[in-house]
């Protein structure tokens, strides 16, 4: 698989390590009343779709940026690549 890095261009997927579902960006509020339940779901439960999947890849052998890669889990086609920083900021995170 070739991941089209937004800054560095096309890079071999072997340069990256894989974390999983990009929903991990949305860490629950630890002070909320339902924090224990929310962290259980956050840490252990996954949608695990067959088809389009937004997921976190870390460019460990490159510029060490985190990417959000939209990939089809049935065909392995990579459909979109964004910097995870941009995705997080768009969701209201400060960093």
């Amino acid at each position: 698989m070739i991941i089209n890095h937004p800054i560095l261009g096309p890079r071999d997927a072997q340069e990256f390590t894989y974390l999983g579902d990009a929903a991990l960006i949305d860490r629950p509020d630890w002070q909320a009343d339902n924090a224990a339940e929310a962290f259980h779901d956050y840490l252990y439960l996954r949608d695990n779709p067959a088809g389009e999947h937004r997921e976190l890849w870390f460019h460990e052998q490159g510029d060490r940026s985190w990417l959000v890669v939209t990939r089809n889990t049935v065909t392995h086609d990579i459909l979109n690549v964004e910097l995870a920083r941009d995705v997080a900021r768009a969701r209201g995170r400060r960093k």
């Binding site: 439960l45 996954r46 695990n48 779709p49 067959a50």
Partner: peptide, 18 residues
């Protein structure tokens, strides 16, 4: 292998990745 898909039909999310 397909547990998430089948149990997803029952509205369940599982502690599983394929």
């Amino acid at each position: 292998g397909s547990s998430s898909r089948v149990m997803g039909l029952a509205g369940m999310r599982l502690p599983i990745e394929s």
